[in-house]
Amino acid sequence: MYFAYDYINENEQICRRVIQQMMGRLFGMGGDVIEQMKLTIQEEKVVRRMKQFELETVTPREVAEWTGLEKKTARKLLKGLVDKEVLAASDRLERVRKYTLEKDLSKFIL
């Protein structure tokens, strides 16, 4: 978490409160939950983009375009997000083609 020096000087209480809330979330959970909620930079980029543009679903091709990864690597990234329970497979067929965001992302600090 980053705060500009000027912002800290002008809004000291707000910065302190934000940091305390973040620490409360982290230390109020079990250690395995903290490990589970760590997202890589690429994973965080995908989740932020979906939330920013309010996307219902995402495909490996779209993720590959956003991140500059190969389509196969994007598929692995999405599978990792499903394993971390950030995304859910929207196709229940043999091969998953689309992914949707889980409703509750409160355990992830984005």
Rank of each mutant, 00 (worst) to 15 (best):
F3Q: 02
I109G: 01
I19H: 01
K51P: 00
D83I: 09
V58S: 04
E94L: 10
E54I: 08
E70W: 00
G30K: 12
L77A: 06
Q36F: 07
L81Y: 04
F27T: 15
R61Q: 14
D32G: 00
K72L: 07
I109Y: 08
L78F: 01
K72W: 04
T100L: 06
R75W: 09
L81R: 03
L105M: 01
E12F: 13
D83S: 12
R92W: 09
L55T: 03
V47S: 04
D104N: 12
S90H: 09
L110Y: 07
P60V: 03
E10I: 01
V96R: 03
V18F: 11
G80S: 07
M29L: 11
K79T: 12
K103A: 13
K103C: 02
K98C: 09
K51W: 00
M37D: 00
V86E: 05
W66F: 08
L105A: 03
K103D: 13
Q21K: 11
Y5P: 06
D83E: 15
K71H: 11
W66G: 10
P60C: 07
G30V: 08
E35V: 12
C15P: 05
T67L: 11
R61M: 12
R61A: 14
R25G: 11
K38L: 11
E44V: 00
F3W: 07
L55K: 12
K51H: 05
E70H: 14
R61V: 15
L101Y: 03
S106D: 09
T59C: 06
L93T: 12
R75A: 13
L39D: 03
E56C: 01
V63Y: 01
Q13I: 14
E62K: 12
G30Q: 13
S106G: 03
K107P: 06
T100I: 09
M23I: 03
V82Q: 06
E12C: 11
G31W: 00
K38H: 09
K98F: 10
I19C: 13
G24D: 14
D32Q: 14
E44A: 13
R17H: 10
W66M: 09
E62C: 00
L26G: 04
D104P: 05
G24S: 12
L87D: 01
L105H: 02
K107C: 06
I34C: 07
L39G: 04
E35W: 08
S90C: 08
R97I: 01
E56Y: 06
T100G: 10
L69M: 10
M29Q: 15
E85D: 12
L55V: 02
R17P: 00
A74D: 03
R95H: 06
M22D: 10
L69P: 01
E56L: 06
Q20F: 00
Q42R: 11
L77K: 02
D91K: 07
T40R: 05
E62A: 08
R49C: 07
L55R: 10
M22C: 14
R25N: 07
D6Y: 06
I14S: 09
E70R: 14
L81W: 02
A74L: 02
E10K: 11
G80N: 08
C15G: 06
